[in-house]
């Protein structure tokens, strides 16, 4: 950051001062993040029985159960399917909205930015409750609106279905997508659109050939955030999905607090963590490789 000190290699004094300041936080994180995570990984290899409780041995029983029992495959498949659909919806609607938002004038821009990204900070329980109220049964408000507008003929079942979960998740995650795209749009040179117009491009061509390719890294990083948060979401699947439509997070919760089979719950959680890390790191690498020419 400072040009004065970045010219030469770090001195011993500088390193000592930096580490001293960061030490309390480092100790906190080692003690309360690194060790507990390691303990959770260990836990997933422990044995458990209805009457004997947790037995600290090293066995692959939990992992074998997850791999062999199709119930878990289906549950993980549902988790990632719902997350992927929610991501798709946020991209399809969030990208144009961010573009429209960016073209708004003065105070309107600030107001609608607050309205659209503000919900991010509003209690997820309250927001999901809102969806539960809107969905509520066949004569919920959502169905009434959709049928009046002629979009559907017969009521759609939202509560306790994947459809409802996807809609509510897309709503919860939308601010992340709009923010990511909006940030990318801010970096665009506003004259570039004018340049394309002056060369004879129509506004759709400008959007498709000029704007979209440039904000694509932003869209993709927004998609990664939305996907990983959706795949590990808890409140929405628990309230909208109900007790039978389980995803990874709600299943782990059940194993821990209802069945009390902690080792199995830990294995589900660790698998979710590993899968997400692989997906996030993998797609980040792909994106960087794809766009390195453009954003060196």
């Amino acid at each position: 950051m400072s040009a004065v000190i970045s010219a030469d290699p770090p001195s011993a004094g500088e390193a000592r001062a930096g580490l001293t300041l960061a030490l309390p936080a480092l100790m906190l994180f080692t003690g309360v993040v690194v060790i507990p995570l390691a303990m959770t990984v260990m836990l997933s290899f422990h044995d458990w029985g209805q009457y004997k409780g947790i037995e600290p041995v090293f066995i692959l029983k939990n992992w074998r159960e997850i791999v062999e029992d199709p119930y878990y495959a289906e549950m993980f498949w549902r988790t990632f399917r719902v997350a992927a659909l929610a991501t798709l919806i946020t991209a399809v609607f969030g990208v144009p909205e961010a573009y429209i938002l960016n073209r708004m004038q003065g105070p309107w821009k600030g107001l609608f930015l607050l309205v659209i990204i503000g919900p991010l900070l509003i209690s997820v329980v309250a927001r999901t409750l809102g969806w539960a109220l809107l969905f509520g049964g066949n004569n919920g408000l959502a169905n009434k609106l959709l049928m009046t507008s002629g979009l559907i003929d017969s009521p759609v079942k939202f509560m306790f279905t994947e459809t409802g979960m996807v809609v509510a998740l897309a709503h919860a995650m939308m601010p992340f997508m709009v923010l990511a795209v909006w940030t990318a749009l801010q970096r665009l040179d506003p004259q570039i659109e004018n340049a394309a117009l002056s060369l004879g491009a129509g506004s759709l061509t400008v959007m498709r050939r000029i704007v979209l390719p440039q904000i694509m890294p932003g869209v993709l990083s927004g998609a990664i955030i939305v996907f990983s948060l959706s795949a590990s979401a808890f409140a929405t699947p628990a309230i909208i999905g109900g007790r039978r439509l389980k995803v990874a997070a709600t299943l782990a919760y059940d194993e821990f607090l209802n069945t009390l089979n902690w080792p199995l719950g830990a294995a589900v959680a660790v698998l979710l963590l590993i899968a997400l890390i692989l997906i996030v790191v993998g797609s980040n690498t792909l994106i960087e490789r794809r766009y390195q020419e453009m954003f060196r």
């Binding site: 994180f29 993040v33 303990m39 919760y253 959680a269």
Partner: peptide, 21 residues
């Protein structure tokens, strides 16, 4: 990266790790 990691680790995993710990 370590300090920002609680943003990346799913809260459900953190909850479980804390509970265990």
């Amino acid at each position: 990266a370590l300090f920002l990691s609680p943003l990346m680790i799913p809260h459900v995993v953190l909850g479980i790790a804390f509970l265990r710990f």
